[in-house]
Structure formats: C-alpha cells, structure tokens
Amino acid sequence: MLARQLSKGPALSALRRKNPLSIPRAFAVRNASTASSSSAFESFLNSRLTLASVSLFTAGSVAWYTHLYGSLPFLGQVHASHASEEGLHPPDYPWPHAGLIDTFDHASIRRGYQVYREVCAACHSLDRIAWRNFVGVSHTVDEARAMAEEVEYQDGPDDQGEMFMRPGKIADYLPGPYPNEEAARAGNAGALPPDLSLIVKARHGGANYVYALITGYVDPPAGVEVREGMNYNPFFPGGAIGMARVLFDGLVEYEDGTPATTSQMAKDVVTFLHWAAEPEHDDRKKNGIKAVILFSTLTLLSLYVKRFKWTPIKNRKILYDPPVDKKH
C-alpha cells in the first residue's frame, strides 16, 4: 500500500530500487490513510448476519440430530433400560383422515362403533361420549335414541325420594362395563382397562400406536419370558400387556357388508376412537384451511399497502430552493 501510494511513476520507482535510503524527504513520510482495505471476504466474515446464521445452523443441526436419534450428539449416554422397554415405534399408517384437509371416514366411524360395542365395550368404558354425540356423525337421531333406550339408567330421586331406573335418553353418556375402578381391576387380574374416550390423544403415536398395538400380538421371541396371564406385544412399553389379542377375522358382521378382517376392524375401531378423542377434528380442518387462505391473502395485501404507503416517503427528495432577492 505504502509503496503504491509513494510511487509517482516509473522514474521514482527506479530511484527507489536503486537505493532505498536515498529517497528524498518529501516522499519518505508515512501516510495516515483512512481508506479502508475492505475486502468482500473480510466483511462477510465479520458481519452479524453471518454470525447469526452460523449460530442458527449449529443449533438447528444439534436440534435435528436430537430429534432424529433421541440424544444429543457427541455425548455418550448410558441407559438403565433397554430400548424394548419403551415399545416398538409404530409405523405411519395411511389414515384416510391423515391429510391437512381430510375429514374422518364416517362410514368407518360407524363400523368402528360396532366393533367397540361388540368387542371393546366388554372391558373398556367410553365415559366422555354421550348418545347424542353420534347424531350427525355416524347415526341418525332415531338410531341414537333407540340405542340409548336399550340401556337402563338410574335417575331420581322421585317424589318419594327413591332412585329409580329408566330407559336412556340421548343426553345420557355411554354406560361402562364396570361400576367402578375396583370392580374393573378385580375382573381383569389387577389390570385396569383404560377409558377409551381420549386414548388416541393419551398415547405416544396416537392412532398409529393403537392400531399397531391391537394388530401387533405375536409370539414372544426367544429369551423373552412373559408371566402367566400376560401377553407379548412388542408395541407395548415393556412388552407384556394384560389385554389379550381380541380381534380375529370375522369376529363381527358389518351391516354394510365390509369384510371383517382383523386389520379392517382395527382400522375402523381406531378411526372411531380417534373421532371420540377429537370430535372437533373435521371442523378444525375446515376452519384451518379457511384461516390459512384468509391470512395469507391478508399478508400479501398488507405488504402491498405497506409499500403503497411508504412509496412517497421513500422517494421524497428534499431540495433547498433559496428565496429570490427582490433587490436584483
């Protein structure tokens, strides 16, 4: 830099080459030049944006790794339990309602209710579903009323202060198989059959897990011992589950003629349970697609309006127009 600024021409350069010490005083000064030696690479290295994006990239990679493999990278971990004790990871099944704007298959819900009624309801309650919830989802009002009337509910007290039994109304909730938890445990060798109202929301893997569980009964592999009265299921945390396999081909007879294979019944009952856990599911997706359309339209419009409002401010030029002296 110094040399370049000092060099006034080929003659001077020649002079310098001949004897550096013989430079005239006028040229032998040090220039305090403020012209920055900016190179694009240096400013790229020093910019905040680079720093921020590199940090973000690093944090993102670590987070992604953790998400994929379940542990932080470069840190050795020792587990007290074997991975099989957390159960197999259920596969992703192609549910008819899996997409962003896909509703439940309501015919499947109706079949699933039949499976629940004929198979699951022997042990599992469905406390949060009332007969009226089926209306407009899987059954007509008359069907729901007829189903409710098949069940006797205790009501009262009447004029004499006595409790009495009456046929169910559609405002009543589905009856459970056991009067209380103790009775349920006593009837199932100490294992409590969970209430199924929210089971899809209450288990990791949701509908995939429930489907994998009820279709996943296999013989225990070599070396795995299952206690008497328990059953082996690789998808269940721990492997040993109190519930035995219940779904077998042809167990129920569907009213719409669908072949009642094990997987068909499992798919229907899981769809039904998914509906029971998320009755708002269809409306939610419908409102979701509306909200996405409306808000993205609003975003684009507001960007336009912002530009429109700022245009006169951004390209404003301030000019000094001195007043004219009247004397001239």
Binding site: R30, N31, N315
Partner: peptide
Amino acid sequence: TPLSARFLHTSVAVKDAPQVPDFSHY
C-alpha cells in the same frame, strides 16, 4: 529525524453533485 514528518490525508473526494438515488422505477 528527517523522516518523521507525518502527513494527514483525510480529504474526501469532491463530487460535482450529490448522488441522489434514482427512484423513477417507483
């Protein structure tokens, strides 16, 4: 020393007219 004089060079290049961005595409 005869070589220790320092020169300041802080003058800014003078332009004929201030550079106003071109807004005509707006």
